[in-house]
Design a protein around this nucleic acid. Sequence first.
DNA 1: GAGTTTTAAGAGTATTTTGTCTTAATTTAA
DNA 2: TTAAATTAAGACAAAATACTCTTAAAACTC
Lengths: 159, 159
Amino acid sequence: MLLSKGCIYGLRSSLFLASQENDGYVSIREISEKLDISFHFLTKILQQLTSTGLMESHKGPKGGIRLTKSGSEVNLFEIVAAIDGVELFTECALGLPGCGVKKPCPLHEKWAGTRDGIRYMLENTNLMELAKKGKEQNLRITEHGGFEWLLNNDCNDAS
Amino acid sequence: MLLSKGCIYGLRSSLFLASQENDGYVSIREISEKLDISFHFLTKILQQLTSTGLMESHKGPKGGIRLTKSGSEVNLFEIVAAIDGVELFTECALGLPGCGVKKPCPLHEKWAGTRDGIRYMLENTNLMELAKKGKEQNLRITEHGGFEWLLNNDCNDAS
DNA sequence: GAGTTTTAAGAGTATTTTGTCTTAATTTAA
DNA sequence: TTAAATTAAGACAAAATACTCTTAAAACTC
Ligand code: SF4
Ligand code: SF4
């Protein structure tokens, strides 16, 4: 599995927040219900994103969580790095420690290229473009539900 | 982590076998010691590779394990698929079930491209080329040791 | 200020992955 | 035929990951 569950949940939540029409706080409870993620588990994951400054939270009624920057300023790599760390993009396909510093293994060049490909894709994809695309084409953000319940009531029979 | 530990050990062992000068059986004990992998754990992993036909084993003295096909015929994708399965290459970056069949999510096109990039790299890398490269350039196959102890005693002070 | 709503924090549990150990079965060789 | 060497198989244990539950702290409403 490329990304941890926590990272996947973080990405989905970020996309959900970027898709909101207004920029107010959204409660973690609402996110967990809409995206079908365990509330307490999600709370911990989002804490990681607030501690790195990608999101900000507010307690009490009317509280919740929101992106600090606009969706177009947040790329997927930032989110992955905040939750799973950068190991995926620095470590070795063969699990050998100390890559790059010491003598490489025969797979290195090919693996480094592939690894950079993953990174490039994540760095060059921002939340805004995904949210925009999801809304326009009414794509999905959870197993069954999509972006239709983010819009007012545009297209409900698109199946 | 892209690949499981078991898969990593399987790849390293395969590369080790492809690097052997003769085509006899190599005992799992020797592989586990040379590559610093738990013997019993490695035994289980290599059983997966024999059960899929990539390797064949032989019990008793003079027994061990060896590749069924020549190294140039075995690409890394086959080994990964045999141990970790093909989920990495079919499933979703966002962990949503039923990808491709139902409505896609906004990340799909980009992720599918990246995913295919990983697969392409693995499918187009065979054990023979890695073994050849490792020997020629005296690269490493474990944390400290490399291909030098596969050769007779060619270059021992290459550090 | 009291009560409610929300995130924060940490302990605790469950599941999966990773690794160990023991026993059995097979093969070789003396 | 006996002993040694090896893989096969499965129970077991440890560690990492994923998830749950409880309590605390903060912020809002009245
Ligand atoms: S050189 Fe590349 S492939 Fe080899 S151990 Fe380092 S990161 Fe891995
Ligand atoms: S369509 Fe979406 S859910 Fe399916 S594999 Fe692609 S990114 Fe994942």
